[in-house]
């Protein structure tokens, strides 16, 4: 539906490549050290202010990678969130069987414990994936220079803790 009205010009990634947004010399240097990945090179050329934002049609290599993670996560999330209750509706007999050891009726366990836990695991998975993408494109974030120097060192530890968790 949103595809219908795609405005003309600048939106094709290839075209965007050739847009005159010249990266500054510093960026060029980091680009070279990146090992010449084509996605990354293309990404460096892009000025995001010229790129159409549409969830269904990612316009840059970075957004494409990110969108893939988002949609994969979303699909799994739909299954873990609405799957158990739907399965219980379809096959109540099977789903209400008690589980070995824990003795939970299966549906109860899937709803009360697996549902919330899988959202948490998916969140960790997503953040890691996103950090990987950031790394791929050389995006540095999380511990700004100024902060390390200041008294906020607690927060910095916290940020690291987040990754290792």
């Amino acid at each position: 539906m949103t595809g219908a009205e795609r405005p003309q010009s600048e939106l094709d990634p290839d075209e965007t490549n050739r847009s005159p947004a010249d990266p500054d010399p510093a960026e060029e240097t980091t680009l070279r050290t990146d090992g010449g990945m084509s996605d990354v090179e293309r990404e460096q050329q892009i000025d995001y202010l010229d790129v159409e934002i549409n969830l269904l049609r990612p316009a840059t290599p970075f957004m494409r990678d990110h969108q893939r993670v988002i949609l994969t996560g979303f699909a799994i999330w739909v299954l873990t969130t609405f799957g158990p209750i739907t399965a219980t509706r379809l096959a109540p007999g099977l789903m209400t069987q008690p589980m070995p050891i824990l003795q939970f009726p299966l549906h109860y366990f899937l709803l009360a414990i697996v549902g919330p836990s899988s959202a948490l695991l998916l969140s960790i998975w997503y953040c890691r994936k996103r950090d990987e993408i950031d790394e791929k494109y050389g995006i540095k974030q999380g511990i700004p220079e100024a902060e390390t120097a200041e008294s906020v060192s607690e927060d910095v530890t916290a940020a690291d803790g987040g990754v290792s968790e």
Binding site: G73, L111, A112, G115, P116, L122, S123, Y126
Partner: peptide
């Protein structure tokens, strides 16, 4: 009963959507 679990599931899993979008 099980209807109450809709709150457990809804109030936790929503954070994933908040996070990714």
């Amino acid at each position: 009963g099980v209807y109450g679990l809709a709150f457990v599931v809804g109030w936790t899993t929503g954070y994933f959507i908040l996070l990714i979008f």
